[in-house]
Design a protein around this nucleic acid. Structure first.
Length: 903
RNA sequence: GCCGGGAUGGCGGAACUGGUAGACGCACGGGACUCAAAAUCCCGCGCUAGCGAUAGCGUGUCGGUUCGAUUCCGACUCCCGGCACCA
């Protein structure tokens, strides 16, 4: 055995061995691997461990390394526990960055993407993951995306895909549609032109048809983090309320009332407009407090009123230009303008002015709200600003609990409140609580045909059309005679030409005659192919199914999907908590209803890993510009307590400002290249550092010293095995008399197995598992006894440490196991078992408290009686000082833990 | 604004079900080895007082429940993430 730990040699040798033995293949039969044969043919349970596939951006970043290491640790642990494990890998290969790269470098997105995939695959292989590479897939491969098209057509047949207009960001100079991220301060990122909103026809998937099921089924996912389920529930946004109609009969004569100074005009035109303005509200109990109506800028009534009112038209344009982002809507100043139109209150008949409000969303509910400034914060702000009346119609119920709450609220001096109470100033509804008031009001509205209870969803249908090149072509042909014709199945896939080079001005497919011009599948006459492509979330909505059968060119899925699915453990970033996971759940349910899969939900357990952070160093130059620097290029300065105060650029010593910790990103220049890390310390050190520095769900702070520490630990582990082996191998301990020292080490060994098994299997907390093994090795290093029995106990401890660490650092584990057990392969070893007899302790230590404060400890036999424990505790010298002459009121004994004497 | 998450030594973090706060590691200090350095090994390390035994204080702030609270409850402060065409 070599004395020095050489990660490079160890890792290459281990990887060659795994490659040669096919150690990472996943077979459906489950009984073909060597370790399974040891089980006398017993069929293994399957375990599907999946990490979210990467976008092939060029090279791996630390977030990938972390994500895939977590998955690999779980995979290898489960494998050792006797599961038939599948861990696949693939590429989320369509998307905007490839087009941006094409614009920048003139390289076709296809070439750029495939080159990136080749490089990143090498990087992943260098990390030693237990991945079955024969199942690899890339979503930009026609063999994959043809099934996007195929399922799209099935959904079209079922009415789950439909066409309607949608709003997009339009860059008038480049004549192209922009993603939100390409719009900066309302202008195109490349051209700087003011971006317009345009309505264009798009395809939508009817996810709202599944809204209720997607919401209900969250309760069937105990293995998902609560916060992810909360985010999804919130996103789906089911709310119970009442749809209320406010009738109007608009003629020029009705333009009276409030002196707004704005006239809707149209006098003499004589058109009367009759109808009903519909709103959705969850607070129908406040209907009698309505003092105005507010509609969205896109609302038909607003459009109508603006026809002859230039000022209003201008305001509407301003609103439309504004952001549709909820965060901005919620915090921006409430602005409005009266339309000059009035509607009738459905119950009181009172005339209510209709305003256009910038805080009303056309896309939610009916695009209009009833303004109840007495009991809604936004309405209140709006009414205050424009001098609209505020009417209180809810009073706190007459009970003490509510009154306290009310008083607290009044103390904040807010003249409105929106909590639930009983109706006042509401005529016949006075005295009714929320539920009864809503029922009564809904019934009365129903009798007049002006309202009914309704359930509204925040979730909207999923618009999948993208006016881009690098994506799955939508399999539709537009025929002047036959309309939109689906591409027949036998003509699939509609292959994307791979040699296009987008230049940023429009979709290059529109310039491809051979792609564009086709014969109509129905009538055979010249027709035009759809050039929109699909949202890349389509690609990622079902890739986890395809891993099971990526070689099937006859069907989207087959019976192997029934074997492997659902995914037992899914691992990925929290940033996908809503969209990707919701769309995947939706597709699973659609495929279930098409009899393609048998599962209800795709992912049984979900782990959302935290971000990888690093120091941010910056320098502000004159004109408000900020320049960022990579921490590896600087020396840090610390204060007396060791806190970072600043840094200096290594190359010229110039001062840099410290900007704290932030997510590794290109823009902040604080990324660390995993490749450099692997080259210097090896994959095992990288993996160990990632797993040791923080638990998977929390963010991870990069630290050069931390990496050094992980490397040092592996060197130490290597040396301990080396020294043990150099002194002659031993058989691991099985039976025989043990000294106290050896018994204690053996206790540590088995206690560590217990802790680590729980950390890997139940808690998914690897940092504490590693800490536990470190403790074991610390304990081992302290044993000086070298008699044969002691060496056997040490052999057992070392073997255990290597086995327990193997899922995290497989290469060194592979090498050390060969030394400890010449001729055997750790890849065939089972997870170590706890020997219960080793965990039996003769004596235990109990802490003694007096009035809850620690005052001493006693050591007692493990089965000591309560009386004896109390007696010993009271006799402790230090304890006596605190009891003094006071009477003991009570003694609490927590078995195995402590004694608390209360005086 | 809404929703979600978080706050523990100089730092990353541990304490799983209300029971020894600070495991493990990093940084730092001291020592051994060395001509010297690196590497490695050993010891110390929450704050304050004390030579020490030990004591007081201490888990963002304020209050509550309890024999006992980092953990449970109430109010608050600050930080981070998400909020519909990036993936």
């Amino acid at each position: 055995m070599q004395e020095r730990y050489d990660p490079n040699e160890v890792e290459q040798s281990a990887q060659r061995h795994w490659e040669a033995t096919g150690a990472h293949r996943a077979l459906e039969e489950g009984a073909k691997s060597k370790s399974a044969a040891l089980e006398a043919g017993a069929k293994k349970p399957k375990y599907y461990c999946l990490s979210m596939f990467p976008y092939p951006s060029g090279k791996l970043h630390m977030g990938h390394v972390r994500n895939y290491t977590i998955g690999d640790v779980i995979t290898r642990f489960k494998k050792m526990q006797g599961y038939n494990v599948l861990q696949p890998m693939g590429w989320d290969a369509f998307g905007l960055p490839a087009e941006n790269a094409a614009i920048a470098n003139g390289v076709p997105p296809a070439k750029w993407t495939w080159d990136n995939i080749a490089y990143m695959r090498k990087q992943l292989q260098a990390l030693g993951f237990n991945i079955d590479w024969q199942r690899e897939l890339a979503t930009c491969d026609p063999k994959y995306y043809r099934w996007n098209q195929w399922l799209f057509l099935r959904m079209l047949e079922k009415g789950l895909v439909y066409k309607k207009t949608g709003v997009v960001n339009w860059d008038p100079i480049d004549q192209t549609v922009l993603a939100n991220e390409q719009v900066i301060d309302g202008r195109g990122w490349r051209t700087g032109a003011l971006v317009e909103k345009r309505e264009i026809p798009m395809y939508y998937m009817n996810i709202t048809r599944y809204a209720d099921e997607l919401l209900q089924a969250l309760d069937t996912l105990p293995g998902w983090p609560d916060r992810v389920k909360a985010m999804q529930a919130n996103w789906i946004g089911k709310s119970h309320g009442v749809n209320i109609g406010f009738p109007y009969d608009i003629s020029p004569l009705s333009h009276e009332g409030r002196g707004s100074g704005v006239r809707a005009g149209g006098e003499g035109s004589g058109d009367r407009l009759k109808g009903v303005l519909r709103v959705f509200t969850t607070r129908a109990d406040t209907l009698m407090g309505t003092t105005f109506m507010a509609v969205a800028a896109e609302h038909p009534l607003a459009t109508h009123a603006a026809k002859n009112n230039a000022q209003l038209a201008a305001f509407i344009e301003e609103c439309k230009r504004g952001s549709a982002m909820e965060a901005e809507l919620a915090t921006q100043e409430k602005k409005g303008m009266p339309t000059g139109l009035f509607v009738d209150h459905p119950l009181s008949g009172e005339k209510l002015p209709v305003w256009v409000g910038n805080y009303v969303l056309m896309t939610y509910g009916e695009g209009a709200v009833m303004g109840v400034p007495g009991h809604d914060e936004r309405d209140f702000a709006f009414a205050k600003k424009y001098g609209l009346p505020i009417k209180q119609v809810i009073e706190w119920p007459d009970n003490a609990a509510a009154r306290t709450h009310k008083d607290a609220f009044d103390a904040a001096l807010q003249p409105w409140y929106c909590d639930y109470g009983v109706c006042i100033n509401s005529g016949k509804y006075d005295g009714l609580d929320f539920e009864h008031a809503v029922d009564a009001i809904a019934a009365d509205l129903g009798a007049k045909g002006l309202g009914e209870k309704q359930i509204t969803w925040r979730l909207r249908d999923w618009g999948i059309s993208r006016q881009r090149y690098w994506g799955t072509p939508v399999p539709i042909i537009h025929c002047p005679g036959c309309g939109d014709v689906p591409v027949p199945d036998e003509q699939l896939p509609v292959v994307l030409p791979e040699d296009c080079v987008p230049d940023g001005s429009g979709n290059p497919l529109n310039k491809r005659a051979e792609f564009l011009h086709v014969a109509c599948p129905k009538c055979g006459k010249p027709a035009r192919r759809e050039t929109d492509t699909m949202d890349t979330f389509v690609d990622s909505s079902w890739y986890y199914l395809r891993y099971a059968c990526n070689d099937n060119d006859k069907a989207m899925v087959d019976e192997r999907v029934d074997y492997w699915l659902p995914v037992d453990q899914y691992i990925g970033g929290i940033e996908h908590a809503i969209l990707h996971l919701l769309y995947s759940r939706f597709w699973t349910k659609v495929m279930r209803d098409l009899d393609l899969v048998k599962i209800e939900e795709p992912f049984t357990n979900l782990l959302t890993q935290g971000m990888v952070l690093n120091h941010i160093l910056l320098r502000k130059s004159g004109a408000g510009r900020v320049e960022y620097f990579n921490p590896s290029e600087a020396e840090f300065q610390h204060d007396a307590q060791g806190r970072i105060t600043g840094a200096a650029l290594t190359r010229d010593g110039s001062a840099l400002e410290y900007g704290g910790m932030g997510t590794m990103s290109k823009s902040k220049m604080n990324g660390v290249d995993p490749q450099a890390l692997i080259q210097e310390f090896g994959a095992d050190t990288a993996r160990l550092f990632m797993m040791f520095t923080s638990p998977p769900e929390q963010s991870l702070e990069w630290s050069e010293e931390g990496v050094q520490g992980s490397f040092r630990f592996l060197k130490r582990l290597w040396r301990m095995v080396y020294e043990h082996v150099a002194a002659g191998l031993s058989k691991p301990y099985t039976t025989g008399e043990l000294s106290v020292e050896n018994k204690t080490l053996r206790y540590s060994t088995h206690h560590t197995i217990q802790r680590v098994t729980d950390d890997y299997g139940r808690r998914l907390q690897f940092n504490t598992a590693i800490a536990a093994v470190m403790e074991l090795l610390n304990a081992l290093g302290k044993v000086g006894d070298n008699a044969p029995v002691a060496r056997a106990v040490k052999q057992e401890a070392l073997e255990t440490a290597v086995l327990l660490l193997f899922p995290i650092v497989p290469h060194i584990g592979h090498a050390l196991w060969r030394e400890l057990r010449p001729g055997s392969d750790i890849g065939n070893e089972r997870w170590p078992q706890v020997d219960a007899s080793a965990l039996v302790q003769d004596e235990i230590e109990l802490m003694i408290q007096v009035n809850g404060k620690l005052r001493g400890s006693i050591t007692v036999p493990k089965d000591a009686a309560r009386d004896a424990i109390e007696k010993l505790a009271r006799e402790n010298e230090n304890v006596k000082r605190f009891i003094d002459s006071q009477a003991v009121k009570k003694i609490v004994v927590v078995p195995g833990r402590l004694v608390n004497i209360v005086v």
